[in-house]
């Protein structure tokens, strides 16, 4: 957690969300998103909603968009699999969707149960019609989120930024 607290990339992401006028922040938490979630909770302009499963967030943000609110969906890579059918809503209705995924099961993962989704997150999202932006370097996160947000909201398109486990602060349990 110490290394996570000292990293500035979550603040960078938060600033991009502010600049993009994101109003609804839906999430199933991950340790890599912990700082960002805290910042969003403190924001006066953002509503935060913890979900019981990630697919709820896909539908919720579709409703938000219908009502004129922009949103973002935060999850870890295992949650991507929970979204697949619901992503047909985004696609058929041609709505924007911005997803920020912290990766597990990707590289040096200690928990084998994270590997099946983590190794295939990018492909699964791609097949589901989501544009993906994989980031392996913390200095590139801000640019990737900016690009994904722009293509999502101005598309409209479904986009996802995949934040690598190699990025400091995105690791879990100190392993």
């Amino acid at each position: 957690m110490d290394s996570l607290e000292s990293e500035t990339w979550p603040e960078d992401i938060y600033q991009v969300l502010v600049e993009n006028r994101v109003r609804q922040v839906a999430y199933v938490p991950d340790i890599g998103h912990a700082s960002l979630i805290k910042m969003c909770h403190k924001s006066y302009n953002m509503k935060t909603m913890v979900l019981t499963t990630e697919e709820e967030g896909v539908a919720l943000l579709a409703g938000a968009w219908l009502g004129g609110d922009r949103g973002v969906l935060l999850m870890q890579s295992s949650g991507v699999g929970n979204c697949i059918n619901m992503l047909s809503l985004t696609r058929v209705c041609r709505m924007p969707l911005l997803i920020l995924v912290t990766m597990r099961g990707e590289r040096g993962e200690f928990n084998p149960w994270q590997v099946p989704m983590g190794q295939n997150t990018n492909q699964i999202l791609t097949v589901a019609g989501v544009l993906t932006f994989a980031v392996n370097d913390k200095d590139h996160i801000k640019e990737a989120v900016e690009a994904a947000a722009k293509m999502a909201f101005e598309g409209p398109a479904a986009t996802a930024v995949l934040i690598s486990q190699r990025i400091p602060g995105a690791k879990t349990f100190g392993r």
């Binding site: 919720l60 579709a62 409703g63 809503l89």
Partner: peptide, 22 residues
């Protein structure tokens, strides 16, 4: 009206996002 033809399980969360936005 926003009638869904799929997205099963999504009606309530979609309504929630809409209610929060409006």
């Amino acid at each position: 009206n926003f009638p869904l033809w799929g997205a099963m399980g999504g009606a309530v969360p979609l309504g929630l996002g809409l209610a929060l936005a409006q």
